[in-house]
Amino acid sequence: MRKLNLTLKVWRQKDDKGKGKFETYKLNNVSEESSFLEMMDILNEDLATKKIDPVAFDHDCREGICGTCSMVINGKPHGPLQTTTCQLHMRSFSDGDTITVEPFRAGAFPVLKDLVVDRSAFDRIIQAGGYVSVNTGVSVDANEIPIPKDIADEAMDSATCIGCGACVAACKNASAMLFVSAKVSQFTLLPQGQPERHRRVQKMVAQMDEEGFGACTNTGACSAVCPKEISLTNIARLNREYLTAKVTAQEV
């Protein structure tokens, strides 16, 4: 098993007010079987033993689904592979590498400490309309409305977004269009989403703009880093849905 000696340049920032800077740490004998976050654990154990404040970073499930982990590694959100940071393993690096680790950068994602950012803007976008307004206790049988398999599958492909924010981090405009389009697409495709179709897309886009995300310039960087491979088709659909809703919805 290969062991790696690494130099880490890590963004350190005390709190949301403080000014941050990069610190350099050396780390030796890291097993290539370790995940990237396990490598960060080793760094933190090392720092803690030296009574230095460990590096704060967001992480939780460590199996690529919760969407909590959020670092930019060597200039790419979630690192060199198209996956989440927790699913990145050290075998993707070489002995002697210098690895730069930065927080996701976006005005709408303020840094709270070190590599931890506040992504509650995403929650607020969902709150603006990312749901089907049904109360608990519906009695319509689940098989009442058949949904063609390809439509269900496509809705699932959109719904698979984990809300990690890598799309925003990768986009040169810090645009959240891929995130918003994934949710809008899911409900646009499904029959259950139809009644609120126009209302939803307008409200979600308005909230997205209010949060201060940039505009989509169709570079495709978002989709290229998305751990769940959400496609740009969703963004086209969002544009279409939004413009149609604005032009055809009844409210003036």
Partner: peptide
């Protein structure tokens, strides 16, 4: 507007995931 959306940039913009002209 897009500039404002990212007030602080990245140190290491090494890995590019989009075409130069699109950016």
């Amino acid at each position: 507007q897009n500039r404002k959306a990212r007030p602080v940039g990245y140190l290491s913009e090494t890995t590019k995931t989009s075409n130069w002209n699109s950016r």
